[in-house]
Amino acid sequence: MVFGRRPRASGAAPAGAGDESEDRAFSEEALSYIDALYGTALRLTRRPQDAEDLVQDTYLKAFRAAGQFQRGTNLKAWLFTILHNTFRNMRRHDGRNPVDVNSETVEQAADQTGDERTPEQLLTRATLDTNLQAALDSLPDAFRQAVWLRDVEEFSYADIARMVDVPIGTVMSRISRGRRMLFERLAPKGSAARAASR
């Protein structure tokens, strides 16, 4: 559901003090995304305590800024944008680089042949024994975010671009490269590179 709120006129009541039923519907829909927000926060922070703090901070900001939410737009995407902005600010204050990307690593593929199985066959067998979540968690931040937001949370490229504050082309590239890196982690060592390079 895409929830709509009336744009608030300047000088009107503060966020949360509008029509009671509308506010309740807004809050209930916003809180219905708590699992998705928490799961994403966990992928970002990698620590449950930090993820909980991030989600709580996200809701605080969202409820206080509820009046700024644009009618007819995607509330889930709006909340995720707040979550990512809050995370970037936290990382900045922590003195850590918010995005650690080394795109070149995905370009490294052995130029050999020998394994005749297809990528699908390799992955199907591999995923029976391999922890997909661990493989996802091992991806560099930018690629993990892109794959997660697209394939798990099903956001559009444009929504993801707004959330992570990069151009759409970069998002599409990160999704593609993130999937490739994931394939290399999940498929048996050596065979993935050979399959990918054939």
Binding site: A109, T118, P119, E120, L122, L123, T124, T127, L132, L136, V147, D151, V152, S176, R179, R180, L182, F183, L186, A187, A192, A195, A196, S197, R198
Partner: peptide, 17 residues
Amino acid sequence: PACRNRVAGERAVRAAV
């Protein structure tokens, strides 16, 4: 074939996720 297989791998990953 390199790109063909790369895309096949990405498709397989997407399906698994």
